[in-house]
Amino acid sequence: NEEPLPEGWEIRYTREGVRYFVDHNTRTTTFKDPRNGKS
C-alpha cells in the first residue's frame, strides 16, 4: 500500500529492471523515491 507519487512524477524501470523516478516538472530523473526519500 504505497502512497501515490507527487504530481508530475512517474515510475519507470531500466532495461535491467532497476526502478527509478521521472520528475516531469523539472525533466529530471532520480533513483531516490520522492515519497519518502529512500532509494
Rank of each mutant, 00 (worst) to 15 (best):
11 I>Y: 04
29 T>Q: 12
30 T>P: 01
34 P>T: 00
25 N>T: 09
1 N>C: 14
33 D>C: 02
31 F>H: 14
22 V>S: 02
32 K>W: 15
37 G>Q: 13
2 E>K: 09
9 W>C: 01
4 P>E: 09
1 N>K: 13
5 L>Y: 03
27 R>S: 14
39 S>D: 13
38 K>A: 14
27 R>C: 15
22 V>Q: 05
37 G>P: 14
9 W>L: 02
24 H>Q: 08
38 K>W: 11
7 E>N: 11
21 F>S: 00
28 T>S: 08
6 P>K: 06
30 T>N: 05
5 L>T: 03
13 Y>C: 08
28 T>P: 00
14 T>P: 01
31 F>V: 13
10 E>T: 07
7 E>L: 12
10 E>D: 06
22 V>P: 00
39 S>A: 13
1 N>Y: 13
32 K>F: 15
16 E>G: 13
16 E>R: 14
5 L>C: 01
27 R>H: 15
20 Y>A: 01
33 D>Q: 01
39 S>K: 12
11 I>W: 03
10 E>G: 05
32 K>M: 11
20 Y>V: 07
2 E>R: 09
24 H>E: 06
12 R>M: 10
17 G>N: 07
36 N>F: 11
34 P>H: 00
24 H>M: 08
7 E>S: 11
14 T>A: 03
8 G>D: 03
19 R>P: 11
5 L>F: 06
26 T>Y: 03
21 F>Q: 00
19 R>S: 06
36 N>K: 12
34 P>E: 01
19 R>V: 09
20 Y>I: 07
6 P>T: 03
6 P>R: 05
17 G>W: 04
24 H>V: 08
29 T>M: 14
19 R>W: 04
37 G>H: 11
14 T>M: 03
39 S>F: 13
37 G>D: 13
22 V>K: 06
9 W>D: 00
39 S>H: 13
1 N>G: 13
9 W>M: 02
23 D>S: 05
1 N>H: 13
12 R>G: 07
7 E>G: 08
3 E>V: 12
29 T>P: 08
5 L>V: 06
1 N>D: 14
25 N>Y: 08
38 K>R: 11
36 N>G: 12
29 T>A: 14
37 G>F: 10
28 T>A: 05
31 F>Q: 12
3 E>Y: 10
14 T>I: 03
20 Y>K: 01
32 K>N: 15
25 N>S: 07
23 D>E: 05
8 G>N: 07
18 V>T: 09
27 R>V: 07
19 R>Q: 10
26 T>S: 09
5 L>D: 02
19 R>D: 02
23 D>F: 03
15 R>N: 12
6 P>Y: 03
31 F>Y: 10
37 G>W: 09
8 G>R: 04
18 V>Q: 10
15 R>S: 14
11 I>R: 06
25 N>D: 06
9 W>S: 00
8 G>Q: 04
23 D>V: 01
26 T>R: 06
17 G>F: 05
36 N>L: 15
34 P>G: 01
7 E>R: 11
4 P>S: 09
17 G>D: 05
34 P>Y: 00
3 E>I: 12
13 Y>E: 06
15 R>W: 10
34 P>I: 01
19 R>H: 06
9 W>R: 00
28 T>V: 07
26 T>I: 02
5 L>H: 02
4 P>A: 11
33 D>H: 02
17 G>A: 04
3 E>N: 11
25 N>Q: 08
17 G>Y: 04
14 T>V: 03
23 D>L: 02
30 T>E: 04
9 W>N: 00
11 I>Q: 08
24 H>T: 10
21 F>R: 00
16 E>M: 12
23 D>K: 02
21 F>A: 00
17 G>L: 05
28 T>G: 05
10 E>H: 06
31 F>W: 09
15 R>T: 13
19 R>Y: 05
10 E>K: 03
18 V>N: 08
24 H>N: 10
18 V>P: 02
16 E>S: 14
15 R>D: 12
3 E>P: 10
15 R>E: 13
37 G>N: 13
8 G>L: 04
39 S>M: 13
33 D>S: 01
36 N>E: 15
5 L>E: 02
33 D>I: 00
2 E>I: 09
31 F>T: 15
3 E>Q: 11
14 T>S: 08
39 S>V: 14
15 R>L: 12
6 P>S: 04
18 V>I: 14
35 R>M: 03
28 T>M: 07
18 V>H: 11
27 R>M: 14
12 R>Q: 08
30 T>K: 04
5 L>W: 04
7 E>A: 12
11 I>C: 08
3 E>M: 13
2 E>D: 11
34 P>Q: 01
20 Y>Q: 04
4 P>K: 09
10 E>Y: 06
6 P>M: 04
38 K>I: 14
19 R>L: 09
35 R>D: 03
31 F>I: 14
8 G>K: 04
38 K>T: 14
19 R>T: 07
2 E>T: 10
18 V>E: 09
31 F>L: 15
38 K>D: 14
27 R>P: 05
21 F>M: 00
11 I>L: 09
28 T>I: 08
13 Y>S: 05
16 E>I: 09
13 Y>L: 07
13 Y>T: 07
25 N>L: 09
21 F>G: 00
35 R>K: 02
10 E>P: 00
12 R>T: 04
13 Y>Q: 06
10 E>V: 07
26 T>P: 01
11 I>H: 03
3 E>A: 13
8 G>S: 04
16 E>D: 13
16 E>Q: 13
27 R>F: 08
14 T>Q: 02
29 T>W: 15
17 G>M: 06
12 R>P: 00
25 N>E: 06
35 R>H: 02
3 E>H: 10
32 K>T: 14
10 E>I: 05
16 E>N: 15
26 T>N: 09
31 F>R: 13
13 Y>R: 06
7 E>K: 12
14 T>L: 05
15 R>A: 14
19 R>E: 08
2 E>L: 10
34 P>V: 01
38 K>Q: 14
2 E>S: 10
11 I>G: 03
1 N>M: 13
15 R>G: 10
20 Y>D: 01
23 D>R: 02
25 N>P: 03
30 T>G: 06
23 D>P: 01
26 T>F: 03
26 T>K: 06
38 K>E: 15
13 Y>G: 01
39 S>L: 12
39 S>T: 12
14 T>D: 07
28 T>E: 10
32 K>G: 07
12 R>S: 06
6 P>L: 04
16 E>K: 13
36 N>I: 14
34 P>A: 00
11 I>S: 06
36 N>W: 12
30 T>V: 04
13 Y>D: 02
13 Y>M: 07
16 E>V: 08
21 F>L: 01
9 W>H: 01
29 T>S: 11
39 S>W: 12
11 I>N: 01
14 T>G: 05
29 T>D: 07
8 G>M: 04
33 D>G: 01
1 N>P: 13
33 D>Y: 01
37 G>R: 10
16 E>H: 14
11 I>F: 05
38 K>L: 13
12 R>E: 06
10 E>R: 03
18 V>M: 11
29 T>L: 13
1 N>S: 12
16 E>A: 14
12 R>H: 08
25 N>M: 08
21 F>T: 01
11 I>K: 06
15 R>P: 14
35 R>S: 03
35 R>N: 04
28 T>Y: 06
2 E>H: 10
23 D>W: 02
6 P>Q: 04
19 R>N: 04
4 P>N: 09
20 Y>M: 06
32 K>V: 15
17 G>R: 06
10 E>W: 03
26 T>L: 05
29 T>I: 15
17 G>V: 01
16 E>L: 12
38 K>P: 14
7 E>V: 09
30 T>M: 05
10 E>L: 04
3 E>G: 14
15 R>Y: 10
26 T>W: 02
30 T>S: 11
6 P>V: 03
22 V>T: 04
1 N>R: 10
7 E>W: 08
21 F>P: 01
32 K>L: 15
39 S>Q: 13
4 P>Q: 09
5 L>R: 02
9 W>V: 02
7 E>T: 10
8 G>I: 02
23 D>T: 01
32 K>R: 13
38 K>N: 14
15 R>H: 12
29 T>V: 15
24 H>K: 09
13 Y>W: 11
32 K>Y: 15
31 F>K: 11
1 N>I: 13
24 H>A: 07
3 E>W: 09
